[in-house]
C-alpha cells in the first residue's frame, strides 16, 4: 500500500504531523500502536491537536492497534515498513513519532538505549551513572536522551543520515518529564 507519508506513532506529535501533511493534500497513513489523543495524557498538557476522527475525516488512513515491526532500506532510503497485522506500507517520506520510554519509542537496558523500530542512532552517556540525578526534581540527564538527527530532523542509521525519515516529538529528547 503506497502513501505519500507514513507516520509511525499516533500520539500528539504523530497526529500533528499527519494533520499538517494531510492539509497539504498529501496521502497519509498513521500507524498507532496504542496511545491516542482521544485519551487525554498529562504530557500533552490538555492540548488536543488532532484526534483520530478528525484525521479520518481528512482522508488519513488510521491503523489503530497496529505496530511497525521493521523497515526495508535501499541504502539510506527507507522503502517500506512492515506491520504486525501483516501490512506493507510504502511511502516517499516516513515520520518517526513513537515517543520515548513509556510508549517504547526508546528502550533502555542496563548498558544501552536503542530505538527498536528502525534502529535509529541514539545519543546517551556511555556511563550509566550519568543517566540520572539523585535529586528527583533536578534536570535529569535521561530526559536528554533521544535519537540523533540532522539540523532538519532526519534520523541517522549507523552513522549515516536517512534520506526520507524524520523524527518528531518526544523521541528527540530534551523534555523535562520528571519536573512536569
Amino acid at each position: 500500500m503506497k502513501y505519500d507519508v507514513v507516520v509511525i506513532g499516533g500520539g500528539s506529535s504523530g497526529c500533528r504531523a499527519a494533520k499538517a501533511n494531510a492539509a497539504k493534500g498529501r496521502s497519509v497513513c498513521v500507524v498507532s500502536a496504542g496511545l491516542t489523543l482521544q485519551a487525554t495524557k498529562p504530557e500533552s498538557e490538555g492540548r488536543v491537536y488532532a484526534d483520530l476522527y478528525e484525521l479520518r475525516k481528512m482522508g488519513v488512513a488510521v491503523l489503530r492497534g497496529d505496530t511497525v515491526l521493521s523497515g526495508s532500506w535501499d541504502g539510506a532510503k527507507l522503502l517500506e515498513v512492515h506491520t504486525s497485522n501483516g501490512l506493507t506500507l510504502q511511502a516517499d517520506e516516513f515520520i518517526l513519532a513513537t515517543g520515548r520510554f513509556f510508549s517504547k519509542g526508546l528502550v533502555s537496558t542496563m548498558d544501552t538505549v536503542f530505538e527498536p523500530v528502525l534502529g535509529a542512532d541514539v545519543d546517551f552517556p556511555s556511563d550509566r551513572e550519568k543517566w540520572f540525578n539523585a535529586d528527583f526534581f533536578a534536570p535529569q540527564p535521561f530526559e536528554q536522551i533521544g535519537v540523533r538527527t540532522t539540523a532538519d530532523g532526519h534520523i541517522f542509521i549507523k552513522g549515516e543520515a536517512a534520506e526520507n525519515v524524520k523524527a518528531v516529538g518526544k523521541i528527540l529528547g530534551g523534555e523535562r518529564h520528571a519536573k512536569k
Binding site: 496504542g34 496511545l35 485519551a39 489503530r64 517504547k104
Partner: peptide, 11 residues
C-alpha cells in the same frame, strides 16, 4: 470488541 487491546500501550 477488543478496543481495550487496541488502546493498551503495554500489550
Amino acid at each position: 470488541c477488543k478496543r481495550c487491546e487496541l488502546a493498551c500501550p503495554s500489550g
